[in-house]
Design a protein around this nucleic acid. Structure first.
Length: 575
RNA sequence: GAUUCCGUAGCUCAGCAGGUAGAGCACAUCCCUUUUAAGGAUGGGGUCCUGGGUUCGAAUCCCAGCGGGAUCACCA
């Protein structure tokens, strides 16, 4: 196949061949011994300069400033950048200057990966740099990297096209250091949480992603098929039921950082696959869990920022505990100005109508209340706020409220007007659980396509007895968005879901095929430019028209190649 | 799904009362031994997203499609 490449790519491929011709392997197999990183040098030099006379470091060439027989290179490794000073007569001590003149100056490019040895010094301009004694090619880059420049914290020509950044995250990570930082912070968030749970002696577990019944939440699942078992399987929408089965099994506390999958819309806060932390702890209730969440988030914020306040857009969010607690009824009273206590379905529908909130007939009491809350309250909840005691219809896995049977012991934590956590005193009454599942079934028959599936194995587990228990789920992607001040979920996912790219696959027949039917090599490029990518296309052409057009192109492009004869063209086509 | 904006060189972008496609960086050749958005000289590089239409003529105007962003709707 033939792949169209740009001029710059073609130059780099030629450089690659030249390197090989010089006996330099552009992709060597052996390890390169690195004994220091760029940030270590910046941290410790020159206070501790005795250590930096014999260093060995590797990274990517990010910019070059060539000044005759000496050059400066910005080398980037995983921790940052450092300037290299490369002097011809230092890396080429003998008569042969080709390593500098040819290899470094001509055959290496921005984006190539090299290893160097040398010593650290400070230039006249005051920049800590490495005076290079030897240089080795570690990997040749065949595609030109976007060149981002910077002066006085002002960035020039940033690689900023979101589509290109998300599709080619590797390039984004190379040239945009703040992107790398987001993902380092994301990892740190998870580590802090994991440490926190482990200190409590809770057990990290793994539960099935392929589930026969997509339980534990209400959402449209991705559906797949297992061939050997010849059965439908679903990618999990939640792992809640499995984790609770483990509490039945006798673990005191279990947690899982889980990828969940939901076959729904995508936007700034939703990706079809996303990460959720769920944790379940025996003998606790939702009051205990609120305090645990407060401690956890405070610790994450301090771990990342050394303080509990976190900047989010033009707001400052303070994760210092305790957080405000508000029942859903009180929140609606406060922000919507109505008391929903004791209201039936028709009355709630009337309230919605009055407030211009859209409803449909499938909505029960729970969904109607949720609609009012979503419309009138959520966006007010900027600082971390626990909303407690949700209507029972909305929470089929949650324990009935200890003092009001129409409510559940559930809370959600809202931050910046968005839901961050969801937690319950878990329902452990197997008979009530089955009734609630059956109620969900009725809702789904009524037309609610988000009602839950019934998992009879889960009911059976509860029948063996689950201790009182509190569980909590928190969206790791959203938490990362809050903690790193990113407005879009795509910016906290390394590889956000995208529509397939227009194929950039190789098109057309290779050079050999054209040569095979007698086309002179010099003409192959012209034919491609003219639109003949395959032999088949060429054979359908009119020879006389082709002769005329190619002759015209030859003149226009000032090609220094022999003109074609009609017999030649006919012979290609007739072969 | 709706509305709206965008798609031009490797990157960032200009060009759009329709008339031979531009800049900076990057790239190539040359000069330059402590520079740093290095500098100087010269040069090459384009399916103007795709397909139709209007027109003597379309990157530019119109229609459709593809891809992306934003807003809204949907979404435990």
């Amino acid at each position: 196949m033939y792949q169209e490449i740009s001029e710059q790519e073609s130059i780099r491929r030629n450089s690659l061949k030249e390197l090989e011709a010089l006996g330099i392997n552009p992709y060597p197999a052996e390890a390169f011994n690195v004994n220091i990183s760029t940030n270590e040098i910046h941290d410790k030099f020159p206070a501790d300069n005795s250590l930096y006379s014999d260093i060995s470091i590797a990274g990517r060439i990010m910019t070059r400033r060539i000044m005759g027989a000496a050059s400066f290179v910005d080398l980037q490794d995983s921790s940052g950048r450092i300037q290299l000073y490369i002097k011809r007569d230092d890396i080429c001590p003998g008569e042969d200057k080709s390593l500098y003149n040819n290899v470094f100056k001509r055959l290496l490019d921005i984006g190539d990966i090299i290893g160097v040895t040398g010593f650290v010094f400070i230039t006249q301009m005051g920049e800590i740099s490495i005076h290079v004694r030897s240089l080795k090619v570690l990997s040749k880059s065949l595609r030109p990297l976007p060149v981002v420049k910077e002066k006085d914290d002002q960035v020039f020509d940033a690689f900023s096209d979101p589509e290109a950044r998300y599709r080619m995250r590797y390039v984004d990570l190379i040239v945009n250091p703040e992107v790398r930082d987001i993902f380092i912070k994301r990892n740190k968030i998870i580590s802090i949480m994991r440490d926190f749970f482990n200190e409590s002696n809770y057990l990290e577990v793994e539960t099935p992603i392929l589930q026969p019944i997509p339980g534990g939440a209400a959402a449209r699942p991705f559906i797949t098929h297992h061939n050997a078992l010849d059965m439908t399987l679903y990618l999990r929408i939640a792992n809640e039921l499995y984790l609770k089965k483990l509490i039945v099994g006798g673990f005191n506390g279990v947690y899982e950082f889980a990828k969940d999958f939901r076959n729904e819309g995508m936007d700034r806060t939703h990706n079809p696959e996303f990460t959720v932390l769920e944790i379940y702890v025996a003998y606790k209730d939702y009051f205990w869990m609120m305090e645990y969440v407060e401690q956890m988030l405070e610790r994450v914020a301090v771990g990342l920022h050394n303080k509990t306040e976190v900047t989010l857009g033009d707001r400052l969010i303070n994760f210092k505990s305790p957080y405000r607690r508000l029942t859903m009824t009180d929140a609606i009273k406060e922000y919507a100005g109505v008391d929903i206590t004791g209201k039936n379905e028709d009355e709630l529908r009337a309230i919605c109508k009055e407030m211009n909130i859209e409803t449909d007939p499938s909505m029960g009491i729970g969904k109607l209340i949720d609609a009012i809350f979503g419309e009138k309250c959520e966006h007010h909840l900027i600082q971390p706020t626990f909303i407690m005691d949700y209507p029972i219809e909305m929470s089929p896995l949650c324990k009935r409220h200890r003092s009001n049977p129409d409510l559940t012991e559930r809370f959600e934590l809202f931050v910046n007007g968005k839901e961050l956590c969801n937690a319950y005193s878990e329902l452990n009454d197997p008979i009530d659980q089955l009734n609630r599942f059956q109620e969900q079934l009725r809702l789904s028959q009524k037309g609610d396509d988000e009602a839950m599936y019934i998992d009879m194995d889960f009911v059976r587990a509860l029948e063996y007895g689950m201790p009182t228990c509190s569980g909590m789920g928190i969206g790791i992607d959203r938490l990362t968005m809050f903690m790193t001040n990113q407005p879009s979920i795509q910016d906290v996912l390394l590889f956000p879901q995208m529509r397939p790219e227009k194929t950039n696959a190789p098109i057309g027949d290779p050079d050999e095929a054209f040569v095979g039917i007698g086309v002179p090599e010099a003409w192959i490029g012209v034919l491609r430019k003219y639109g003949f990518k395959t032999i088949e296309q060429l054979k359908e052409a009119n020879p006389n028209k082709l002769l005329n057009d190619l002759g015209g192109l030859r003149k226009k492009m000032k090609l220094d190649i022999p003109a074609l004869k009609i017999e030649e063209i006919k012979s290609w086509i007739e072969q």
